[in-house]
Design a protein around this nucleic acid. Structure first.
Lengths: 121, 121
DNA sequence: CTGAATCCTTTAGGATACTG
DNA sequence: CAGTATCCTAAAGGATTCAG
């Protein structure tokens, strides 16, 4: 088992951890899925679609995704202002994996819930 | 855009969020990858492989994975005690998706880092 | 060796008020 | 409309101590 360490040890040296630390938050994956579904969508529409995200956290989430080059932000200098978000090619390349994970979740949520209920007793 | 809401809204009704809330922690995915790589592994070996996880969090992480039916825990009544962990079939079914995500991370970490550095200025 | 229990710090995230 | 700024709470996680 030679260089597993190259993969696992230390947050900075580890691509997995560097990236997962980012998507492991509460909203990133959801936002990516919405952006994939809507192609081009305004701030408020994302807000209403998720429903229970705070304005602050949605902003933070979008800024992080933008910083990573996964999401593009377009500001239209109108009044009232309009801002549209869409996936970049890099962001799109991540979508299939998120979709697969999401599909796995849907396929397994039933048994997982059952296991959890059974475990705590 | 009919029932996107069925998918996104509310944590309890949403399989994606129910499952991702669980794997979105700091260590679960890493533990799954290690278990997949080692097949059968003792507590201390996981601990040393990751390196910077606290004993408490490793325990908590393993308990959650066990509760979800992804990991099996086998106790050998010896002195000193020996406990071995391995993936269940359900856990194994998740591995390909985690691997894909991890591969994507490795493929894109360079450009992501560059984007982040460029963004903050 | 594999934990459990306790205490403590750090971080994520929400509520609210305000702005161009 | 799309934020920013501030304050606050809750949750995650670490350090340490103890035990079978």
């Amino acid at each position: 088992m030679e260089n597993i360490l190259e993969i696992y040890s230390g947050t900075e040296n580890c691509p997995i951890r560097t990236v997962l630390d980012r998507f492991g938050d509460k909203w990133s994956m959801l936002v990516l899925l919405i952006l994939d579904h809507e192609k081009k969508v305004r701030f408020n529409q994302i807000h209403k679609t998720i429903g229970d995200v705070s304005q602050k956290m949605l902003t933070v989430t979008l800024r992080k995704l933008e910083a990573d080059g996964l999401v593009e932000r377009t500001v239209f200098p109108e009044i009232p202002p309009r801002v549209e978000y869409n996936l970049t090619p890099r962001g799109q390349s991540l979508i299939p994996h998120v979709q697969n994970l999401s599909q796995w979740a849907k396929d397994n949520i039933g048994e997982i819930r059952a296991s959890r209920a059974n475990y705590s007793k």
